[in-house]
């Protein structure tokens, strides 16, 4: 059996609903991952702390408010402070190309637009974590 992969799904910033984040969280669960879902209105501190306490392999952020350039650098900094540079950070939202480049420089490895399918996201995570491409089978 392969090691259980743990993923934090969080929605930083002040924008209200989390339908998209929930859809992704469910898709990740259905792909065999353990998803720690923390919901909306997360501060960077809350996210970094949750990532640390839950010892996650992946942090998935959903930001639709446009505040990604304010939030993500701070989150990366707090993860770094906690010695968590090895954690895979992926981001979903409406992110302009030039911002994508800047975020990737900060260590964000996957940026997904609103059109991305959940399968794409799952496949990306599996590949980044060097997991076999086939989804985990029920035990």
């Amino acid at each position: 059996m392969e090691r259980k992969i743990r993923i934090l799904v969080a929605k930083p910033g002040l924008d209200g609903h989390d339908r998209g984040a929930k859809v992704v969280a469910r898709a990740l669960r259905d792909a065999g991952f353990e998803v720690i879902y923390t919901g909306i209105r997360q501060t960077p501190e809350m996210i970094a702390e949750a990532a640390l306490q839950e010892d996650v392999d992946v942090v998935g952020l959903s930001i639709l408010s446009g505040a990604h350039m304010a939030l993500v650098p701070r989150i990366m900094e707090l993860l770094h402070e906690r010695g968590m540079d090895d954690v895979l950070v992926v981001l979903g939202g409406i992110i302009p190309n030039e911002d994508v480049k800047a975020l990737e420089k900060l260590g964000v490895r996957g940026v997904f637009g609103p059109g991305a399918s959940t399968q794409e996201i799952v496949a990306f995570i599996r590949e980044e974590l060097n997991l076999s491409p086939a989804p985990a089978v029920a035990a």
Partner: peptide, 12 residues
């Protein structure tokens, strides 16, 4: 039991 995955939502 189907996927082996889990949605852990208590932290909310």
């Amino acid at each position: 039991p189907f996927s082996g995955g889990a949605l852990l939502g208590d932290r909310v």
